[in-house]
Structure formats: C-alpha cells, structure tokens
Amino acid sequence: MKLTLEVWRQKNSEDKGKFETYTLDNANEHMSFLEMLDVLNEKLTKEGKDPVAFSHDCREGICGSCGCVINGRPHGPDEEVATCQLHMRKFEDGQKITIEPWRAKGFPVLKDLVVDRSAFDRIMHAGGFITVSTGSAVDANLMPIPKAIADEAFSAANCIGCGACVAACKNASAMLFVAAKVSHLALLPQGQAEKTERVKKMVKAMDQEGFGNCTNTGACEAECPKSISIRHIARMNREYLSASIASE
C-alpha cells in the first residue's frame, strides 16, 4: 500500500504546531493503524527525523491509551474499535490520511498526537470510586443484582476512558465519559453509599476542567469505541438533579 500521511507535528505544549506530509510505500492492509505508524517512525528515524509521538499501550482495545482523529473521525473509519484495532484494510491504496490529536481545552497537546488526559483522572479522583470493607473477599454473587440492571451497569462500565467522546463532540464535552462512570456506579448496590455526593463532585470536577457542555447531539455515542449510549447521560442528569435539588 502506498499512502500519503498528513500528520500533526507539535514539539511540545508551547509550540504552535503544524501539519507535515509524509509518503509511505511499504504499508500493507494486514497492519493495524498503529503498526503503520511504527513503520512510518522507523522510516523517519532512519532519515534522522523526529518520530511521530502517539499514545498506545495494550494494542487490543481495552486500555484506552491510544486515540487520534483519523480523516475527521476519532479512532478512524471503522465502527466500535479503538485506534489500535483499526486495520489498514479500511483504507484504499494511494489514499491520503489526515491524522490529528484529540482537540479540546481539557486535553492539551503534549507532543504531536499525544494529549494530556489527566483531566479524566482528576474527575475520577473526585468521586469515581466506592468504599468497601477490606479483609477477606466476599463470595461471588452474594448480593443479588437483577440481570437487566447488571447488563445496564456493564454497558456503562465498558468505558475505557479514551476520550473519543470529547474529541467527537462539537462542544468538546466530557459528559459521556463522566456519565458512564456515574451511571455504572449508581446502578449497582455497591455504589449506593456515595451515590448523591459522587455525581455532584464528579460534575463539579468536570466543569472545572474546561470541557464544553452537552447539547444532546449524539456525536459521542456514534464515535465511542465501546458504543456507550447517551442514555447514560440522561441517567447522570437525573442523578445530578435529584442529588442537588431533591436530596437534603
């Protein structure tokens, strides 16, 4: 495969950054997108140029480390995959591919395609946890949870925190991520102790990080590699309003 790659290059967070165009002759359709970038970096290194920085870790779509906007879509043209699971067979020979980092005030670019997603960590620290008694582990399935509730909680727990929702949203809103966490824990009995405080604290932390507001366009759920539904955003709204207005 022959490819023309238009890649965002930025030395550090202070640098203004610009697009550079590279050609790659030895890509093939069996490569993953990140393997294609590895090949590009090998070439750049041999030419004495600075390789393109990008985030990655597990390369099997579960860690949430990777992610860039590929031809205008977070995680690229395939459905329900992270960037690492995207394959080059989804592209045409001779195609031009534009590769950009997540763009959001809450995700400042550190270098090239790498953004600082510690805003998500701070939101999690604010309330994305439960308290449990330590000691020996309790028996599995000791606490009965109806199947439908467990399924719904699991559909939220699928969130890998990659940030594609923020990247896709025209307002750079982080509501789908925060909603997935709030919804997951609010549905399960283990999350009840902090239920009202959690949603207030997490929303407050989200607002402080400079993410935009949700206008219910649904762009986030369309691009989410784990297909998390905006139904969870409605649940977070409900949790927040009842925690703020109805609770004592």
Binding site: V69, N71, R103
Partner: peptide, 8 residues
C-alpha cells in the same frame, strides 16, 4: 472548549 479546531 475547543480553542484549536480540526482540519478535517
């Protein structure tokens, strides 16, 4: 919330 936009 998005000071730098996307090219594509």
């Amino acid at each position: 919330s998005r000071p730098v936009g996307y090219k594509k």
